[in-house]
């Protein structure tokens, strides 16, 4: 369970930083009225939707950290036989990176008010993300054809489970991306469009990060890394 604890430590760090800005040492029973320096404590200047997405991503991160924890714990049992990762996954990784880059471009373009570039970026991101999902399905097909079935080994089970969960999150993101794209064509207000594009980009970067982490996990590098850490500690 160490992975999830480290993750929670990061969250606790954020929470502690935020709390330390909330005048927890203040004496509210003595402070009547509205000081101008109070206004700063009312709420964050960030758009509410971004904060909402941030909180959601913390939950998603928690989910994948827990899968990782479970993976490490299950891995120690002797029946564990790592499966050979299909080469295709490298290609998929590239496609997903491309998707993230496209959304980053769209986000920059939205800030500059270049609607054409925004549209281009959104469509590219959507298509590449779709390509990623199809690629993942093809990787699944390859593995099943080679006899690495879901229930034949726990390593396989975890592979399908974790990649599947990640894919579902991308699929959910595509719904949001689709709505943003539709907005970009139907003349959404510029500041509105910019916010939605930025939200999509944030979500995409996060899922890319998650993918890189689970790729490292499934390929076995993460285990080596943890091993080295443990050896350094003991």
């Amino acid at each position: 369970m160490s992975v999830i604890l480290v993750f929670l430590l990061v969250i606790a760090g954020f929470a502690g930083w935020w709390l330390s800005h909330q005048r927890l040492m203040g004496k509210p029973w003595l402070e009547q009225g509205l000081a101008s320096d109070f206004v700063a404590f009312d709420r964050s200047a960030l758009p509410t939707a971004k904060i909402g997405l941030g909180v959601f991503l913390a939950v998603v991160g928690c989910l994948f950290a827990l899968f990782t924890s479970a993976y490490f714990m299950r891995m120690t049992v002797s029946d564990w036989q790592p499966l050979p990762l299909p080469r295709l996954l490298w290609f998929n990784t590239g496609v997903l990176i491309l998707s993230s880059v496209a959304l980053q471009c769209a986000s920059v373009a939205a800030r500059r008010g270049q609607v054409d570039m925004v549209r281009l970026g959104l469509v590219t991101a959507g298509l590449t993300a779709l390509a990623f999902l199809i690629g993942q399905l093809m990787a699944w097909r390859q593995l099943t054809d080679d006899g690495y079935l879901l229930s034949s080994n726990p390593a396989n089970s975890f592979f399908y489970l974790i990649t599947g969960m990640h894919g579902l999150h991308i699929l959910g993101g595509l719904v949001g991306l689709g709505r943003t794209t539709a907005g970009a064509w139907n003349g959404a207000r510029p500041e509105r469009l910019r916010l939605s594009v930025e939200l999509c980009a944030m979500y995409w970067h996060f899922l890319l990060f998650v993918w890189l982490a689970i790729f490292a996990l499934l390929a076995g590098w993460a285990a080596t890394f943890v091993d080295i850490c443990q050896r350094l500690l003991t």
């Binding site: 005048r23 927890l24 009312d42 509410t48 904060i51």
Partner: peptide, 15 residues
């Protein structure tokens, strides 16, 4: 969570 973070009216500090 986000309503507590962002929905508070003027003067309603966390404390």
């Amino acid at each position: 969570v986000v309503t507590v973070l962002q929905g508070r009216t003027r003067g309603m500090t966390m404390m």
